[in-house]
Design a protein around this nucleic acid. Sequence first.
DNA 1: GCTTTAAAGCTATGAGAGATAGCCAAGCGC
DNA 2: GCGCTTGGCTATCTCTCATAGCTTTAAAGC
Lengths: 187, 187
Amino acid sequence: MPRVGLTPDRVVDTAMTLVDERGLDGLTLAAVADRCGVAAPSLYKHVSNLADLRTLVGVRVLREMADQFATAVMGRSGADAVATLMRAYRGYVVAHPARYAAVPADPLHQPEYAEAGRRLLEVMGAVLRPWQLTGNDLVHAMRAARVITHGFASLESAGGFGLPQDLDETYERLIHMFLTSLTPQES
Amino acid sequence: MPRVGLTPDRVVDTAMTLVDERGLDGLTLAAVADRCGVAAPSLYKHVSNLADLRTLVGVRVLREMADQFATAVMGRSGADAVATLMRAYRGYVVAHPARYAAVPADPLHQPEYAEAGRRLLEVMGAVLRPWQLTGNDLVHAMRAARVITHGFASLESAGGFGLPQDLDETYERLIHMFLTSLTPQES
DNA sequence: GCTTTAAAGCTATGAGAGATAGCCAAGCGC
DNA sequence: GCGCTTGGCTATCTCTCATAGCTTTAAAGC
């Protein structure tokens, strides 16, 4: 039988499209194997198991998010940068709702995710720098931003809001709420 | 074989304790049947299937939440009532992290959950009444409250915050942030 | 108090998931 | 051209949920 030339990266690629198409629960080894034109056990030559594949997908998503957010805030600062970052967060989740569900809530606690998670955190930290928050205030501010972005994004991606109408407005109000909660020492 | 006297409610009862002990993924028909002292297929006499059981658990949880929140805010009003409700929300999730994961993000869109979901929404609406918000402002305010409570609770229950220390402080700041975002027409 | 009958158990069985063992061939390095 | 690593495969196991169909319990009705 001719080799199809699979690699871990290619497996993750098809896993990503499968997640997009069928949701996170649709990510099964049988489906991935089928999509790759290969029998299911062959996948184990490239990926340890399903949990491993899911982790690889999650890490890929987290990196994708960090990259997009970093470029989005580039050249911006102050309230503009914060708002842009928060909009970019929501934008990613709207564009890839199923992918977002693949990243765990506690990336920093899992070694595989830690690096990507830290990068994402650094973007938030950089954007908040103009406020010169002290250690404790900074922690609370970053947590607040995370609660708002994750809370809104997870609800929106799960269809948690009754009507899609005015969702932009709701999010803008949340951004404003967060910005005014920072000490009004805007850049 | 003597009958063990199962009912749908008793099945859901043991399902709830299983969710508490093993998490939402630990809820399997085999485990429930074992716990009930019955063979797995016997459960189908009381519950349509696993999805149905999961729904029943979710509805039970949502009702539990609505009940607890309603009694928590009883006799309170204004900012005190809002803060109490938000603290009760977090309190439930801290007490039963796995149960919280059983309720879907869009309860109002699923007929089985609709009634319990509406009750929970009514509590929030009642608590916001002193602010006399207009239709649009009310919608945005309730969404903001939901984003904050759900965002924080889901992150906390998933171990999403690095250190548990100061989490109370973070949440109190978020409550304050929300309250000050309402027009300062406090009761 | 006996008969009927709906309901609540059971065993047997199947489909489909993940996972492992072990075989075989492709194709690269020497 | 030879050998060995590597990436495929089939066969098989276990554990899910799920269904079919049988048996027995126990309550309702005469």
